[in-house]
Simulated assay, not measured.
Amino acid sequence: MDFSWVFTYWPLIVAGAIQTVLLLVISVGFGFILAIGLALALVCGPFWLRWCAKVYCTSLRGTPLLIQLWLLYYGVGSFLPMIPGLRASVLWPVLREGFFFAAVSFTLNYAAYEAEVLRGALLAVPKGELEAGRAFGMSPATLLRRIWLPRAIRIALPTIGGEVVLQLKATPLAFTVTVMDLYAVAYKVRQDTLLVYEPLIVVTLFYVCLTLIITRAFRRVEMQVPIRR
Score class of each variant (00 low, 15 high):
1 M>R: 08
3 F>P: 01
6 V>K: 03
7 F>G: 04
7 F>E: 09
8 T>G: 09
12 L>P: 03
14 V>W: 10
14 V>E: 06
15 A>W: 12
16 G>Y: 01
16 G>R: 00
17 A>W: 01
19 Q>V: 03
21 V>Q: 06
23 L>Y: 03
26 I>M: 04
27 S>G: 06
28 V>R: 02
30 F>L: 15
31 G>W: 01
31 G>Q: 00
33 I>Q: 05
33 I>G: 07
34 L>C: 09
38 L>G: 00
39 A>C: 10
40 L>A: 13
44 C>A: 11
44 C>H: 07
46 P>H: 11
47 F>M: 10
48 W>I: 11
49 L>S: 05
51 W>S: 13
52 C>E: 04
55 V>A: 15
59 S>E: 03
59 S>I: 14
61 R>A: 01
65 L>Q: 08
69 L>R: 00
70 W>K: 06
71 L>T: 11
73 Y>I: 11
74 Y>R: 12
74 Y>C: 08
77 G>N: 02
79 F>Q: 14
81 P>K: 08
81 P>C: 04
84 P>R: 07
85 G>V: 06
87 R>P: 00
88 A>S: 15
89 S>Q: 14
89 S>T: 12
92 W>I: 11
93 P>N: 07
94 V>G: 07
96 R>V: 15
98 G>Q: 05
99 F>M: 12
102 A>L: 10
103 A>Y: 01
104 V>E: 05
106 F>Q: 01
107 T>P: 01
111 A>P: 00
113 Y>W: 09
116 E>K: 06
119 R>E: 10
123 L>S: 15
125 V>N: 08
127 K>N: 07
127 K>Y: 14
127 K>H: 12
130 L>C: 08
136 F>E: 11
136 F>A: 10
137 G>I: 13
138 M>V: 04
138 M>C: 14
138 M>K: 06
140 P>F: 08
141 A>W: 09
142 T>H: 14
145 R>H: 14
146 R>G: 06
146 R>H: 15
149 L>D: 05
149 L>K: 05
152 A>Y: 02
155 I>C: 03
156 A>K: 04
158 P>S: 10
159 T>Y: 11
160 I>G: 02
164 V>G: 00
166 L>P: 01
170 A>G: 12
170 A>H: 13
170 A>Y: 02
170 A>F: 05
175 F>A: 10
175 F>P: 02
176 T>H: 03
176 T>M: 12
179 V>Y: 05
180 M>N: 11
180 M>V: 15
181 D>Q: 06
182 L>W: 11
182 L>I: 12
183 Y>R: 06
183 Y>E: 08
184 A>I: 06
185 V>Q: 03
185 V>W: 00
187 Y>H: 12
187 Y>S: 09
188 K>D: 04
189 V>D: 02
190 R>Q: 13
191 Q>A: 12
198 E>G: 03
199 P>H: 09
207 Y>N: 07
207 Y>I: 09
211 T>E: 04
212 L>D: 05
217 A>H: 08
218 F>H: 06
219 R>L: 14
219 R>A: 08
220 R>T: 10
221 V>G: 10
224 Q>C: 07
